[in-house]
Amino acid sequence: MEQRIYKTIRGGNSSLLTYLREVWKVRHLIYTFAKRDLKVQYAQTYLGLLWSVIQPLTGLIIFSFFFQRVMPLHLDVPYSVFAFTGIIGWFYFTSLIGQAGTVLMNNQQLIKKIQFPRLVLPLSKALTGLIEFSISIVLLVILMLIMGCPFSWRIVFLPLVVLANVITGLSGGIWLSALTVRFRDLHHIIPYLVGFGIWLTPVFYPTTIVPQQFNFIYYFHPVANVIALYRWIFIGTAVNEMQVLVSFALAFILFVSGLVFFVRNEKFIADHL
Protein backbone atom coordinates (compact mmCIF):
# COMPACT_ATOMS: atom_id res chain seq x y z
CA MET A 1 0.00 0.00 0.00
CA GLU A 2 1.32 3.40 -0.94
CA GLN A 3 1.29 5.70 2.06
CA ARG A 4 1.14 9.45 2.06
CA ILE A 5 4.29 11.15 3.27
CA TYR A 6 3.38 13.94 5.65
CA LYS A 7 6.84 15.42 5.93
CA THR A 8 10.35 14.66 4.80
CA ILE A 9 13.61 15.78 6.34
CA ARG A 10 16.85 15.61 4.46
CA GLY A 11 20.12 17.50 4.29
CA GLY A 12 20.85 20.24 1.81
CA ASN A 13 19.69 23.78 1.21
CA SER A 14 16.18 25.02 0.84
CA SER A 15 15.63 27.96 -1.47
CA LEU A 16 15.04 31.42 -0.09
CA LEU A 17 11.56 31.46 -1.52
CA THR A 18 10.51 28.17 0.07
CA TYR A 19 11.93 29.43 3.32
CA LEU A 20 10.09 32.73 3.19
CA ARG A 21 6.89 30.87 2.45
CA GLU A 22 7.59 28.82 5.57
CA VAL A 23 8.03 32.04 7.57
CA TRP A 24 4.80 33.43 6.14
CA LYS A 25 2.95 30.33 7.35
CA VAL A 26 4.03 30.97 10.93
CA ARG A 27 3.89 34.78 10.76
CA HIS A 28 1.75 34.71 13.90
CA LEU A 29 4.97 33.83 15.76
CA ILE A 30 6.49 37.19 14.83
CA TYR A 31 3.61 38.83 16.61
CA THR A 32 3.77 36.35 19.51
CA PHE A 33 7.46 36.97 20.14
CA ALA A 34 7.08 40.73 19.82
CA LYS A 35 4.25 40.69 22.32
CA ARG A 36 6.25 38.47 24.65
CA ASP A 37 9.28 40.76 24.52
CA LEU A 38 7.28 43.91 25.15
CA LYS A 39 5.47 42.31 28.07
CA VAL A 40 8.63 40.93 29.59
CA GLN A 41 10.66 44.06 29.07
CA TYR A 42 8.22 46.32 30.79
CA ALA A 43 6.71 43.86 33.26
CA GLN A 44 6.67 45.21 36.80
CA THR A 45 8.02 48.61 35.82
CA TYR A 46 5.91 51.58 36.82
CA LEU A 47 6.57 53.58 33.69
CA GLY A 48 6.12 50.59 31.37
CA LEU A 49 6.43 51.47 27.69
CA LEU A 50 7.44 55.04 28.56
CA TRP A 51 10.90 53.69 29.28
CA SER A 52 11.35 53.18 25.58
CA VAL A 53 11.28 56.95 25.02
CA ILE A 54 13.29 57.95 28.05
CA GLN A 55 16.57 57.08 26.35
CA PRO A 56 15.93 59.12 23.18
CA LEU A 57 14.54 61.96 25.30
CA THR A 58 17.65 62.05 27.45
CA GLY A 59 19.72 62.22 24.27
CA LEU A 60 17.57 65.05 23.04
CA ILE A 61 17.99 67.06 26.23
CA ILE A 62 21.77 66.62 26.24
CA PHE A 63 22.17 67.51 22.56
CA SER A 64 19.81 70.45 22.88
CA PHE A 65 21.75 71.86 25.81
CA PHE A 66 25.09 71.36 24.07
CA PHE A 67 24.21 72.68 20.66
CA GLN A 68 22.08 75.57 21.83
CA ARG A 69 24.11 76.81 24.76
CA VAL A 70 27.68 75.54 24.46
CA MET A 71 28.35 75.71 20.74
CA PRO A 72 25.22 76.92 18.99
CA LEU A 73 24.33 75.65 15.52
CA HIS A 74 22.44 77.99 13.27
CA LEU A 75 19.41 76.27 11.82
CA ASP A 76 16.13 77.44 10.30
CA VAL A 77 14.12 75.20 12.60
CA PRO A 78 14.07 74.69 16.37
CA TYR A 79 17.11 72.59 17.28
CA SER A 80 15.10 70.16 19.41
CA VAL A 81 12.88 69.24 16.45
CA PHE A 82 15.90 68.92 14.22
CA ALA A 83 17.74 66.65 16.65
CA PHE A 84 14.70 64.53 17.46
CA THR A 85 14.05 63.70 13.81
CA GLY A 86 17.59 62.32 13.76
CA ILE A 87 17.30 60.55 17.07
CA ILE A 88 14.16 58.55 16.20
CA GLY A 89 15.71 57.12 13.05
CA TRP A 90 19.02 56.40 14.72
CA PHE A 91 17.44 54.70 17.75
CA TYR A 92 15.22 52.48 15.65
CA PHE A 93 18.25 51.50 13.60
CA THR A 94 20.45 50.74 16.61
CA SER A 95 17.71 48.86 18.42
CA LEU A 96 17.44 46.61 15.35
CA ILE A 97 21.20 46.10 15.20
CA GLY A 98 21.47 45.46 18.91
CA GLN A 99 18.31 43.45 19.45
CA ALA A 100 18.06 41.51 16.21
CA GLY A 101 21.80 40.95 16.23
CA THR A 102 21.71 39.17 19.56
CA VAL A 103 18.28 37.57 19.39
CA LEU A 104 19.53 34.08 18.49
CA MET A 105 22.03 34.08 21.33
CA ASN A 106 19.39 35.28 23.76
CA ASN A 107 16.93 32.54 22.81
CA GLN A 108 19.28 29.57 22.85
CA GLN A 109 17.09 27.41 25.05
CA LEU A 110 14.14 27.87 22.77
CA ILE A 111 16.15 27.21 19.63
CA LYS A 112 17.49 23.98 21.03
CA LYS A 113 14.06 22.68 21.99
CA ILE A 114 11.48 23.83 19.49
CA GLN A 115 11.60 23.98 15.73
CA PHE A 116 10.37 27.06 13.86
CA PRO A 117 11.92 29.23 11.15
CA ARG A 118 14.55 31.14 13.10
CA LEU A 119 14.17 34.26 10.96
CA VAL A 120 11.01 34.88 12.94
CA LEU A 121 13.15 35.99 15.89
CA PRO A 122 14.98 38.93 14.26
CA LEU A 123 11.77 39.88 12.43
CA SER A 124 9.90 40.05 15.71
CA LYS A 125 12.46 42.61 16.88
CA ALA A 126 11.48 44.85 13.98
CA LEU A 127 7.95 44.76 15.32
CA THR A 128 8.85 45.56 18.94
CA GLY A 129 11.06 48.35 17.63
CA LEU A 130 8.16 49.67 15.59
CA ILE A 131 5.98 50.00 18.68
CA GLU A 132 8.67 51.98 20.46
CA PHE A 133 9.28 54.00 17.32
CA SER A 134 5.58 54.90 17.08
CA ILE A 135 5.63 56.28 20.60
CA SER A 136 8.60 58.45 19.64
CA ILE A 137 6.73 59.70 16.58
CA VAL A 138 3.87 60.76 18.82
CA LEU A 139 6.37 62.65 20.96
CA LEU A 140 7.83 64.28 17.88
CA VAL A 141 4.41 65.47 16.80
CA ILE A 142 3.76 66.88 20.27
CA LEU A 143 7.15 68.59 20.20
CA MET A 144 6.43 70.12 16.80
CA LEU A 145 3.06 71.41 18.00
CA ILE A 146 4.68 73.01 21.02
CA MET A 147 7.39 74.60 18.89
CA GLY A 148 4.82 75.73 16.38
CA CYS A 149 6.36 73.88 13.42
CA PRO A 150 4.11 73.43 10.40
CA PHE A 151 3.24 69.95 9.07
CA SER A 152 3.54 69.16 5.42
CA TRP A 153 1.81 66.85 2.92
CA ARG A 154 5.16 65.01 2.74
CA ILE A 155 4.08 63.08 5.84
CA VAL A 156 2.30 60.61 3.53
CA PHE A 157 5.76 59.27 2.67
CA LEU A 158 6.45 58.42 6.30
CA PRO A 159 5.55 54.70 5.99
CA LEU A 160 8.00 54.30 3.10
CA VAL A 161 10.82 55.91 5.05
CA VAL A 162 10.02 53.75 8.08
CA LEU A 163 10.23 50.72 5.80
CA ALA A 164 13.64 51.88 4.61
CA ASN A 165 14.62 52.35 8.25
CA VAL A 166 13.52 48.77 9.05
CA ILE A 167 15.31 47.25 6.07
CA THR A 168 18.51 49.15 6.87
CA GLY A 169 18.43 47.98 10.49
CA LEU A 170 17.41 44.42 9.66
CA SER A 171 20.12 44.03 7.04
CA GLY A 172 22.68 44.59 9.76
CA GLY A 173 20.70 42.71 12.38
CA ILE A 174 20.19 39.61 10.28
CA TRP A 175 23.83 39.43 9.24
CA LEU A 176 24.98 39.95 12.80
CA SER A 177 22.56 37.44 14.34
CA ALA A 178 23.68 34.67 12.00
CA LEU A 179 27.35 35.55 12.39
CA THR A 180 27.26 35.99 16.17
CA VAL A 181 26.22 32.36 16.63
CA ARG A 182 29.49 31.32 14.98
CA PHE A 183 31.72 34.18 16.09
CA ARG A 184 30.86 35.20 19.59
CA ASP A 185 33.32 38.09 19.38
CA LEU A 186 30.74 40.05 17.42
CA HIS A 187 28.53 40.06 20.48
CA HIS A 188 31.02 42.44 22.06
CA ILE A 189 31.55 44.48 18.93
CA ILE A 190 27.91 45.52 18.54
CA PRO A 191 27.95 48.14 21.35
CA TYR A 192 31.05 49.73 19.80
CA LEU A 193 29.40 49.88 16.39
CA VAL A 194 26.46 51.65 17.94
CA GLY A 195 28.55 53.91 20.13
CA PHE A 196 30.87 55.14 17.38
CA GLY A 197 28.24 55.08 14.67
CA ILE A 198 26.34 58.04 16.10
CA TRP A 199 29.37 60.32 15.43
CA LEU A 200 29.52 59.22 11.81
CA THR A 201 25.82 59.81 11.35
CA PRO A 202 24.20 63.25 11.11
CA VAL A 203 21.96 62.66 14.11
CA PHE A 204 22.60 65.81 16.10
CA TYR A 205 24.41 67.88 13.49
CA PRO A 206 23.40 68.81 9.93
CA THR A 207 25.41 67.45 7.01
CA THR A 208 26.09 71.06 6.00
CA ILE A 209 28.77 71.40 8.67
CA VAL A 210 30.63 68.36 7.31
CA PRO A 211 33.55 69.37 5.02
CA GLN A 212 32.77 68.87 1.34
CA GLN A 213 35.45 66.25 0.76
CA PHE A 214 33.82 63.86 3.25
CA ASN A 215 30.35 64.08 1.76
CA PHE A 216 30.97 61.01 -0.41
CA ILE A 217 30.49 58.75 2.61
CA TYR A 218 26.77 59.49 2.56
CA TYR A 219 26.54 57.50 -0.64
CA PHE A 220 27.41 54.46 1.45
CA HIS A 221 25.50 55.43 4.56
CA PRO A 222 21.84 54.34 4.39
CA VAL A 223 21.02 55.44 7.95
CA ALA A 224 22.21 58.97 7.21
CA ASN A 225 19.81 59.02 4.29
CA VAL A 226 16.95 57.58 6.31
CA ILE A 227 17.47 60.45 8.74
CA ALA A 228 17.74 62.94 5.86
CA LEU A 229 14.36 61.71 4.62
CA TYR A 230 12.75 62.03 8.05
CA ARG A 231 14.01 65.63 8.07
CA TRP A 232 12.69 66.18 4.60
CA ILE A 233 9.28 64.97 5.76
CA PHE A 234 9.07 66.89 9.01
CA ILE A 235 11.15 70.02 8.52
CA GLY A 236 11.58 70.21 4.77
CA THR A 237 15.38 69.89 4.57
CA ALA A 238 16.60 69.20 1.05
CA VAL A 239 17.84 65.67 0.23
CA ASN A 240 20.43 64.47 -2.22
CA GLU A 241 18.42 62.01 -4.34
CA MET A 242 21.54 60.36 -5.69
CA GLN A 243 22.81 59.63 -2.20
CA VAL A 244 19.43 58.20 -1.20
CA LEU A 245 19.24 55.92 -4.25
CA VAL A 246 22.79 54.61 -4.04
CA SER A 247 22.78 54.02 -0.29
CA PHE A 248 19.32 52.40 -0.31
CA ALA A 249 20.34 50.12 -3.14
CA LEU A 250 23.33 49.15 -1.02
CA ALA A 251 21.10 48.52 2.02
CA PHE A 252 18.79 46.41 -0.10
CA ILE A 253 21.65 44.29 -1.41
CA LEU A 254 22.89 43.85 2.15
CA PHE A 255 19.40 42.88 3.26
CA VAL A 256 18.84 40.25 0.58
CA SER A 257 22.32 38.81 0.94
CA GLY A 258 21.74 38.74 4.71
CA LEU A 259 18.56 36.75 4.18
CA VAL A 260 20.36 34.30 1.92
CA PHE A 261 23.20 33.97 4.39
CA PHE A 262 20.80 33.49 7.28
CA VAL A 263 18.81 30.80 5.51
CA ARG A 264 21.97 28.99 4.41
CA ASN A 265 23.23 28.97 7.96
CA GLU A 266 20.01 28.35 9.77
CA LYS A 267 20.51 24.60 9.88
CA PHE A 268 23.80 25.08 11.71
CA ILE A 269 22.43 27.47 14.30
CA ALA A 270 21.49 24.73 16.78
CA ASP A 271 24.86 23.03 16.20
CA HIS A 272 26.75 26.10 17.37
CA LEU A 273 24.67 26.98 20.39
Binding site: K7, T8, I9, K113
Partner: peptide, 11 residues
Protein backbone atom coordinates in the same frame (compact mmCIF):
# COMPACT_ATOMS: atom_id res chain seq x y z
CA UNK B 1 16.05 21.55 15.09
CA UNK B 2 19.19 20.21 13.49
CA UNK B 3 19.73 19.11 9.96
CA UNK B 4 21.29 15.77 9.05
CA UNK B 5 24.46 15.75 6.94
CA UNK B 6 23.04 12.93 4.87
CA UNK B 7 20.15 10.55 4.85
CA UNK B 8 16.42 11.01 4.78
CA UNK B 9 13.54 10.89 7.22
CA UNK B 10 9.95 10.34 6.19
CA UNK B 11 6.98 10.92 8.43
Amino acid sequence: IMQPDSGEINF
